[in-house]
């Protein structure tokens, strides 16, 4: 078995954790981005909402810009997941790093919920979700699909 650190470009979908994760997360974020618009009527495009009517499932706060971000992330993940293991690995790692930054910096930027700095209209469940998404995407992006030969190692390297 090879121990190279380069991603396995030709890994089939079912044998690549990065492709599966990118596709699943891509679909979920795409759906969340779409249904989010049902909760953002009357909410500023890039500012904090009232924190009660703009909650997806009554939990996660959004505004239209937040929905657009979810749509773009969902599309990027879905395309990468259906393309190749190397594309999925790179996309998972990149989006994981961005989410990690958002999960931490966003927490402090949104210290005052009604501040213009809270331009994504974030609340506490959002921070938890961003942090959880970040660690899953980073862990799989950095740790899986590193071997070219997946005959005996379908998962992580």
């Amino acid at each position: 078995m090879s121990t190279t650190a380069s991603p396995a470009r030709g890994t089939r979908f079912g044998a690549s954790p990065n492709r599966i994760l990118a596709t699943v997360f891509g679909i979920v974020y795409l759906l969340v981005g779409l249904i989010g618009f049902f909760w953002t009527s009357g909410v500023p495009f890039a500012g904090p909402g009232n924190g009660s009517s703009n909650l997806i499932l009554g939990i996660f706060e959004v505004n239209p810009l937040h929905n657009v971000a979810h749509l773009l992330i969902g599309i990027a993940l879905l395309i990468a997941g259906t393309a190749s293991a190397s594309a999925a690995k790179a996309t998972n790692t990149t989006i994981g790093a961005i989410y990690l930054l958002l999960g931490i910096v966003g927490f402090f930027l949104a210290a005052n919920h009604d501040s213009p700095l809270n331009f994504l209209s974030l609340n506490t469940p959002d921070h938890f979700l961003h942090l959880a998404s970040a660690v899953v995407l980073l862990a799989v992006g950095l740790g899986a699909d590193r071997v070219a030969d997946t005959r005996s190692a379908p998962a992580a390297a």
Partner: peptide, 11 residues
């Protein structure tokens, strides 16, 4: 090594 789904579940 874990299988793909076991690995993802664990992560």
């Amino acid at each position: 090594r874990p299988g793909v789904w076991a690995y993802l579940g664990g992560v």
